[in-house]
Design a protein around this nucleic acid. Sequence first.
RNA 1: GCCCCCGUGGUGUAGCGGUUAACAUGCCUGGUUCUCAGCCAGGAGAUCGAGGGUUCGAUUCCCUUCGGGGGUACCA
Length: 477
Amino acid sequence: MSAPRTRFAPSPTGSMHIGNVRNAVFSWLFARRHGGSFVLRIEDTDRSRLVEGAVAEIKEGLTWLGLDWDEGPVFQSGRLDIYREHARRLVDEGRAYRCWCSPERLAEMREEQKAAGRPTGYDRHCREDSHGRTEDEPHVIRFAMPLDGETSFHDEVRGDISFDNALIDDFVMIKADGFPTYQFASVVDDHLMQITHVIRSDEWVASTPKHVRLYEALGWEPPKFVHPSLILGPDRSKLSKRHGATSFVEFVERGYLPDALVNFLSLLGWSPRDDREVMTRDELIAAFDIEGMVNHPAVFDVQKLEWISRQHLRLLPDARLAALARPVLEARGLVSAPADPGADAYIAAVCGLMKERLTVLPDIADVAGYFFSDDFDYDEKGRKWFAGDGARDLFEALAEALQAVDWNEESIEAAIRAAGQTMGREGGRIIHPVRVAATGQTAGPSLFAALAVLGKERVTARLRRAGAYAEHINANH
RNA sequence: GCCCCCGUGGUGUAGCGGUUAACAUGCCUGGUUCUCAGCCAGGAGAUCGAGGGUUCGAUUCCCUUCGGGGGUACCA
């Protein structure tokens, strides 16, 4: 295939919807797969819905995701002259016409049509007759749809689709405020920007015949249309706020990795048609194709996202994970700000130990707090190891024994097991109390590995503290 | 209402005329171990939405039907 050009064309009317991001992923993947271009276009033609900061969020979002664009952003609001010029041409050629009907009249008309159970649509009041109105008066420009016959097009994922022209409205191309509608602007831009594959949600298939007729009237070759299906919530309706997080930023905030999100989203409505699911960005690019796109909607399953997230987290080298974890740990006050090699090596060691139990990056702070702070309570279930007269002596003896140990996992294990044995404690009966003393937890990674990372100083201090605590609670009985 | 699209285990998908209907996730059980997570091994879970055709044979092709979704704006 000769270099395709795709585009992502969001409107800056709020925060990016996760479903829209999925379409960006598809468009980007497709362009990258075939060595084409990915263009960013901002569809800011509805002035009443513009949201401040939305464009910045879109750009930041794409950048965060690693979906780099080759051109743009192109703002439609800066291209008004272009749309007007093409609209005028269509009016001159009789393919479009000016319409002075008021919004009120239109609303009333729609009302009546609904009440009568007829299909709604503009009654073409101004199509053949300007009713004495002039260009100077406020008006819109409508497209003159063919009155009969049908319009069909080929959708790359669903095949041929056709519509009855009689049922398609003489839609508005240029609004009264001089701005184009999506229907018109996107066609003009897609052509002018030489977009070869229009990849956009299923919700656009119903308006595609309008676009097809527009291309025809303009004398242009239409691009290929690709309509991936919608992403649904668990109740199978279009994913929306009431299903939980739908805004892209919420996923960023939760701490998913860009690669994990791209991977998960790519699997919603597309499949490589083999057993692979966890895929790197490069693997996705190499595997992506339109044939693998599916024509039925997909339910957004957070549990699957979480699984993919876990897989990507453990794919990361320790040092890389540590670099990502540092800001999280700093925010929790577990690590202090200026990075230094010693601390970073320590964080990396902790990450190596803990990464298999992370679903999302910030989990590291919840699960590994005791590696960074001595300020922890003993888990309720673990307190039983402090009870009894031998407890204090046990911890003291252990601290003493470890003092002289060459600090590595094997030696630590040998020393602890030996000390336990002399006190008549083996296996879990020595390991569990030590874990509670050193980490406050009853669960965690392999104890000796954890102790090795924690370091001699910390471990012995915590054992002594545990001894004191044991003495304290036993004295109170 | 009208138009369009879709319908394989809870979920994401594979399969597209002959399969014990596959993989993953999620769930359950067992194993490993110092615990949890993980990992390994098993298991439950699908009359392939339903009814008609076509065919020696349909999840796969056709029709109908039901269900779901989308569209029906001077929003995108």
